[in-house]
Write a protein that binds this DNA or RNA. Structure first.
Length: 607
RNA sequence: GGGGCUGUAGUUCAGUUUGGUUAGAACGCCUGCCUGUCACGCAGGAGGCCGCGAGUUCGAGUCUCGUCAGCCCCGCCA
């Protein structure tokens, strides 16, 4: 066999067309398919760029070359030299980009043989996830994955382009950092040099990017790897990539503007889609009121309506008791649901109950008249008032839930999504972005009877609610009461949502030490402990910290949405299983006793 | 930590409800034939620790218990 320098490709497998007819070319690639007709041999050669048919005719090619080519099997790597020729009349393949031509081979070489692959390399695979992950290098040869990684690359490039053009610096932050409480469980790395001490792998560059603001790098971004030792989901991997950014001397509107600009650039460059800006903004409480979820899917309507006032005194005890105890009654209208069968209603009721509802009341506005098991309690007038409020006409259905406010909204929010999916109300090919803003700063932790940070510890209260932080604010209310002043504080925090998926969140940060310390105290951290854990941030805040804020968006989720995938594994080259294992390289794995000894570690037990 | 689903040729699955002769199919693989195929075709062939371990039984792919792995969900998590 000649040296490879003489067998190097002159063209890729995706670029030859009728315009190249007559050219002498060499192709390198993998055998996608071979069709040996005895006296005539066709091979489809594949690379990242496409597929080209080569043909060997024993009458026109050296015997040795033909013999070699008949040995070629699926996934062999080959080099073929020949002349581009038009396909004979009637044999053009319209379904193939290179289908008008073929390469008539006169020299053929096998560069590498392949074992029979455990699954076939085709666009739609039936291979199990286990096989696909174990043989990831084969799975990655498939066109859908190659397309996903291509989109991912172009997305990353568009993001870098946008921020670079707007004077942002991409600055790397460390991977080995100190472990801090709050948030997710850390992955930890033992230190050899300092025995019995550990680094943590970053859950995000959060504190470092704030330090960069304090250092004066007032426009920062990074495509940052982030690691969390928590259980996995279809949209959660132990390591993922964030589009992280932070700016100084800004209000939230400045952040929104940059992100909207970046998203517009990204979607135009990569998908050719024009986005409308500005994205709509809704306060957290408004989102919960109208859609029952903090990441509403705006690709369909069916908003939730409050009918508490209408039914408060209607005589139906289930409703009036709930109202008396401070609860609410809310409803949503399913257009065209008036002919729902008993079975369909029962199924929906089961869903509601699984979500914690006591039950599901309903009004069916069928052709034959309105049907409702609660009619005899609420009467015609109240029924009509409810239908008017939720805009239910003849042929529609109304579903009603009553409970505490947040619970009622969440249940209806989930029902709304289920109904939207079941009845295919969700419009495809729409990109509905929105901002959800002003989340509560604190979240009540029932198990521990204390307050947790709803987002993170560095989110600033909105100006209006800042007085509620005051140490001396008198109140008799326990923190379990949702009226407690601390629980009424709203944070200058925002989530970016696309089609019902949370892409990420950010906030205007606390830039004054005493406020940061107060928040840490409220979260149950003594001054000593705060100093120990966050001392470096608190000290940095004492040396001229500018007002600043930013956001971090999940790149994996963005690319998954852009490529129409439900699972972010499809847009990550080397992902992990649901139990955080990599089936290809076999991690996590044992380490040697020597490694352990060097780190000063030993196992408690081997169970 | 909890729940649901799945595990049988190289692969994807059927067979498990009702235990019983030699565990089937398709694709892939191997051999032969075939000069215009592109899901090539035709003929033949090889290929099985029924995830693993106990148990029940005269007898287990099939029943019971345990265990491991994968997927999805809740908890957890930005």
């Amino acid at each position: 066999m000649p040296s490879f320098s003489e067998l190097k490709r002159t063209h890729t497998c995706g670029e030859l067309t009728a315009a190249d007819v007559g050219k002498a070319v060499t192709l390198n690639g993998w055998v996608q398919e071979y069709r040996n007709l005895g006296g005539l041999l066709f091979i489809d050669v594949r690379d990242r760029y496409g597929l080209t048919q080569i043909v060997l005719n024993p009458e026109k090619v050296a015997e040795t070359a033909f013999a070699l080519a008949t040995r070629a099997r699926h996934e062999y790597v080959i080099a073929a030299t020949g002349v581009v020729q038009p396909r004979p009349e009637g044999t053009v393949n319209a379904g193939m980009a290179t289908g008008e031509i073929e390469v008539a081979v006169d020299e053929f070489h096998i560069l590498a043989e392949s074992k029979t692959p455990p699954f076939e390399i085709e666009d739609v695979t039936e291979a199990s996830d286990v096989l696909r992950l174990e043989y990831r290098y084969l799975d990655l040869r498939r066109r859908p994955l190659q397309n996903n990684l291509r989109i991912r690359h172009f997305a990353a490039r568009a993001i870098r382009e946008y921020f670079s053009d707007r004077d942002f610096y991409e600055i790397e932050t460390p991977l080995l950092i100190r472990s801090t409480p709050e948030g997710a469980r850390d992955y930890v790395v033992p230190s050899r040099v300092q025995k019995h001490k550990f680094y943590a792998l970053p859950q995000s560059p959060q504190l470092f990017k704030q330090i960069l603001m304090i250092s004066g790098y007032d426009r920062y971004f990074q495509l940052a790897r982030c690691l969390r030792d928590e259980d996995l989901r279809a949209d959660r991997q132990p390591e993922h990539t964030q589009l992280d950014m932070e700016m100084s001397f800004v209000t939230r509107g400045d952040i929104f503007g940059e992100i909207e600009g970046m998203m517009t650039h990204l979607f135009r460059k990569v998908l050719g889609v024009k986005l409308e800006t500005p994205f709509p903004r809704y306060d957290y409480y408004e989102a919960m009121n109208r859609w029952g979820i903090d990441k509403p899917d705006l690709r369909f309507g069916m908003e939730i309506n409050d009918i508490t006032d209408i039914v408060a005194d209607c005589g139906f005890k289930v409703f009036s008791d709930v109202v008396k105890n401070g609860g609410v009654v809310k409803a949503l209208c399913l257009k065209g649901g008036g002919n729902y069968s008993r079975k369909q209603v029962d199924e929906l009721t089961d869903v509601a109950k699984q979500l914690g509802a006591g039950g599901l009341a309903y009004i069916l506005r069928a052709e034959t008249g309105d049907k409702s098991p609660i009619m005899k309690f609420i009467g015609e007038d109240v029924k009509d008032a409810i239908c008017a409020k939720v805009d239910a006409s003849a042929g529609d259905a109304v579903f009603i839930v009553s409970d505490k406010k947040l619970k009622t909204e969440s249940i209806l929010g989930q029902l709304r999504l289920q109904l939207g999916r079941r009845h295919e109300l969700i419009k495809k090919d729409e990109w509905q972005f929105l901002w959800v803003t002003r989340f509560p700063l604190f979240e009540y932790n029932e198990d521990e009877d204390r307050l947790d940070a709803m987002h993170n510890i560095v989110s600033s209260p909105i100006d209006e609610d800042l007085p509620l932080l005051d140490r001396n604010l008198a109140t008799d209310l326990p923190i379990s009461d949702w009226q407690h002043p601390l629980r009424r504080i709203r944070a200058e925090q925002y989530d970016l949502v696309l089609n019902g998926t949370e892409l990420g969140s950010g906030s205007i940060r606390v830039h004054q030490r005493h406020i940061q310390q107060r928040i840490l105290n409220i979260l149950g951290m003594s001054d000593e402990r705060a100093e120990k854990m966050f001392g470096f941030l608190l000290r940095a805040l004492e040396y001229g910290a500018p007002p600043h804020g930013g956001i971090a968006l999940g790149l994996d989720r963005i690319v998954a949405l852009m490529t129409g995938n439900d699972n972010i594994r499809e847009v990550i080259a080397f992902p992990k299983t649901a139990s955080a294992a990599s089936l290809m390289d076999g991690s996590p794995s044992d380490i040697t006793p020597e490694q352990l000894r060097e780190l000063g570690l030993e196992f408690l037990s081997r169970d």
